[in-house]
Amino acid sequence: MLALFVGLLLLVSLFFNCLGVLSLYRFPDVYTRLHGATKCSTFGTIFAIFALLLYSFARFMAEGESRFLVLFIHVVIGGIVLLISNPTGAHALARAAYRAGILPEPAVVDALEEANKRKREAAA
């Protein structure tokens, strides 16, 4: 019974991780790839974390050994670290890519480029 739910959560996790990897090959430029990679790999790993939480909680309830509770607490902290660090890293990468001069290749509108142009004209 426990293995069924754990397996379902792991399947969802692997599905989204696969999509994250696939998006790196299917999308045309840096920014759209960043969308797919960040969102899908974070969401996929969070579901793996949910599976671990369910597993350790169920084992703790069944056997009462404190090491499963320790596993639970550590996995919760790992999840929080992941949830903070992953989107921040993605934001840093996007900003660095933009400042390194890589423009969004198919783009309908680019407000940042317009703002930068206005700033350059004001300085000149």
């Binding site: 696939l22 999308f27 759209t32 797919g36 969401f43 969004p104 783009a107 309908v108 680019d110 703002a115």
Partner: peptide, 23 residues
């Protein structure tokens, strides 16, 4: 978060995008 991943999943498979930077 859930809605975002469902949305990106559909776009990865169908490949229809309309990107741009707004402020």
């Amino acid at each position: 978060l859930t809605q975002a991943n469902w949305d990106v999943a559909k776009r990865v498979i169908t490949g229809e995008i309309n990107p741009g930077i707004v402020k």
